[in-house]
């Protein structure tokens, strides 16, 4: 069976290597400050004993007060998964560092999040809308989007 890392344990490991990067943690996930998300994810990918070589899924949720970007990481060598989240407060001009340099698999998913949620990923090679056309008003997966 795939082992799911408990968020609290994961937070401890991250805290050791990247102090002050943890914003919050629960059993399900570790929540990282958006500014440090790239370093933390790079660490998770490169650390010998974690080895998260695959970005399984990348998504975002609109919680009205804040947006949550969720990284589902997978280690095929160790058969483990973990969930990393980052919270972006506010509703306008949201940015978070792109992880396309770590995982190519993030390319299309980050574009999709920008398209549907309106979160910009910095340093993404091709930050354009993907499912909708350029010039579409608004970002439809936001809770305040009105048709």
């Amino acid at each position: 069976m795939t082992k799911l890392f408990v968020g609290t344990e994961l937070a401890k490991v991250i805290e050791l290597n990247h102090p002050d990067s943890i914003a919050d943690h629960s059993d399900a996930a570790a929540i990282i400050h958006p500014g440090q998300i790239h370093e933390v994810l790079a660490f998770l990918k490169q650390a010998e004993d974690l080895d998260f070589q695959v970005l399984s899924a990348l998504t975002a949720v609109d919680y009205i007060e804040y947006f949550e970007v969720i990284y589902h990481l997978l280690s095929m060598r160790r058969n483990t998964r973990c969930v990393i989240k980052a919270r972006l407060p506010g509703r306008e001009e949201l940015t978070i560092p792109s992880v396309t340099d770590l995982w190519r698999g993030a390319e299309l998913q980050e574009r999709e999040i920008w398209d549907l949620m309106g979160i910009k990923f910095e340093d993404h090679p091709n930050m354009k809308r993907i499912l909708l056309w350029e010039g579409f008003p608004g970002h439809p997966l936001r809770k305040d989007f009105i048709r």
Binding site: M1, T2, K3, Q53, M76, R77, R78, N79, T80
Partner: peptide, 12 residues
């Protein structure tokens, strides 16, 4: 390939 090991962590 050595990139994946489906049997891993079966023991724990």
């Amino acid at each position: 390939s050595s990139l994946a090991n489906m049997a891993a962590s079966e023991g724990d």
